[in-house]
Amino acid sequence: MIQPAQTTGPGAAGEGHDWQPQIIAFCCNFCAYAAADLAGSKRMQYPPNVRIVHTPCTGKIEMEHILDAFEKGADGVLVAGCLEGGCHFLEGNLRAKKRIEHVREILDQVGIGANRLRMVNLSAAEAPTFVRRVQEIVQTVRELGPNPIKNIPAQQEQDEL
């Protein structure tokens, strides 16, 4: 269903002085993914901290996918869908918007913080917008610092059964 599709750079997730945030971007096939592709074709520069996950629609992104990214150490998550009213599946992006809002509440309650998760809307032609949105979330997450869950050593008890 979901496959890692495009890697824009090494995006080292080490901590310390040269720490670079690791951002997971769930991109809708019909807009943001095409916009990212276009940005690449146009040789537009954007931070290499983003790992793009190609999705058929933002409405297909379950809340668990986002929580899983954070549990596994992502410093930020960007969900990029079509402009409101422009969803290929009519209202997938509107459903995603509600889910994202709910996950943001969960992240606040958990202690990771809602600001690490953001949804943006853009069309397939908006490569510059995509680049700008990526720059914005990288900047935001850089100011927030690493995902606090990464600072705690992994425990055997955390292993999935």
Binding site: E62, Q109, V110, I152, Q158, L161
Partner: peptide, 24 residues
């Protein structure tokens, strides 16, 4: 689905509290 989401939330919250929990 709700159980799955709560499992993620509890695991992360407990880990951040330095009191990890294994959830099935």
């Amino acid at each position: 689905r709700e159980v799955s989401i709560m499992a993620y939330a509890l695991r992360m919250a407990r880990k951040l509290a330095s009191n990890p929990v294994r959830i099935e």
